[in-house]
Design a protein around this nucleic acid. Sequence first.
DNA 1: TCCACATTTCGATGATAATGGAAACGTCCA
DNA 2: TGGACGTTTCCATTATCATCGAAATGTGGA
Lengths: 229, 229
Amino acid sequence: MSLNRNVSSIASLISDPSRAAILLHLLDGRCHPAGDLAAAAGITPQTASFHLAKMAELGIVTVEKHGRHRYYRIAQASDAEMIEQLLSFAGPAPVVSLRQSDQMKKLRHARMCYDHLAGEAAVRITESLQSAGHLQKDGLQLHVTASGERFFADFGLDLPQLRKKRRAFSRCCLDWTEREHHLAGALGQGLTERMIAMDWFRREEKSRAVRITQEGKQGIAERFGIRLD
Amino acid sequence: MSLNRNVSSIASLISDPSRAAILLHLLDGRCHPAGDLAAAAGITPQTASFHLAKMAELGIVTVEKHGRHRYYRIAQASDAEMIEQLLSFAGPAPVVSLRQSDQMKKLRHARMCYDHLAGEAAVRITESLQSAGHLQKDGLQLHVTASGERFFADFGLDLPQLRKKRRAFSRCCLDWTEREHHLAGALGQGLTERMIAMDWFRREEKSRAVRITQEGKQGIAERFGIRLD
DNA sequence: TCCACATTTCGATGATAATGGAAACGTCCA
DNA sequence: TGGACGTTTCCATTATCATCGAAATGTGGA
């Protein structure tokens, strides 16, 4: 059986700790210059460049030249979700240093999962949407109810347009820190975008971590009826 | 077994061609003695033992001693599904030999996907169940309708009992040969078990392939209204 | 008790590949 | 035009690891 050729090449990308670190860093969905990725993975720029070239060749990441920088990002959402899935499969990583544990706390609290919100905040919001009857869990699917249609429209989301996108509209994504599901798909992306636009959440520089603002706490309390800190 | 499963170690399991071959072989959900797995992967027993020990340490496979044999199997259904998912992610592999292409044809036709049916037969059956209104696709979820409840009960399945199991009841599983969904979860497993019990399908020795019997063709034509060969 | 067989452990080997130093390339800026 | 900087290419080193021969372990059968 040699169906393993392709599988192996994909998996071998992630099997290297340095590449895994790079990919993990790219999971925030943003573009990153090669140097940053090298620093994030704790390797020299040469080595990072070597790995990035390999990943680009396989189509996992794409490059964009801007001046003397080269910005890398994960090519497709499906790839990012695959990596997140591997994460949930692998379970939480062992904590080594205090600094890591600190960063870990932030990530557990709220972070980007490629293009949508993840972490405790995302899980709590998703739960709230369900208990309010706006979303209905149905396996890995999160069904938008009639009241949900109104709620999201009221929130400023253009649902018909989100449905048009060539990707899953509303689905669960296993949160690897919370071990619970949070909202993903086009709806998860749209909701996250909207909340960031309203300055409820602010993305941290060079990190997947996301910070909740004062307005965010207030707004979330009003809209979702939950208190985050 | 300390599951220090970090991403890299999980991925490196699959990244090695020999281990991938072993895992692929184990995807039929059965127990296999170490020697068989070595033969399947085209490596010596020592090497296979080395790999199996590694996988057991990570908790991906479990061992069972029976006499002088040691039977290995994939520890959890969720692990198996993850591997299947990786397969669909990687896509079909290039065919090398005639023999492989022959085996491949069989696999494409009907095979076990850990504990439920996969391949063309499974996809066609799933489609038929949907167009008959017994199942309703809803994202990654396959909802059992009222008529479906009756249909499956009539088929000899104890749905309440299947629902009790600590796993997804009814869901889609991406078929990597057909690139379509087929029925998985407890319901998929139950349906497959029932059809094998009725001798509609017969599992081949030492392979994931499944053969349809004459009774099977007839029964499937009557019950599902489709013709397989 | 002895042999056959399945499997594992040990040890050595060889191939692969990650790594970083040196240097080149291109871009930005003064 | 020259120098700083981000990035890549080239290259040599090194570490890792899959592999298999040899031998050990353990089980079943005669």
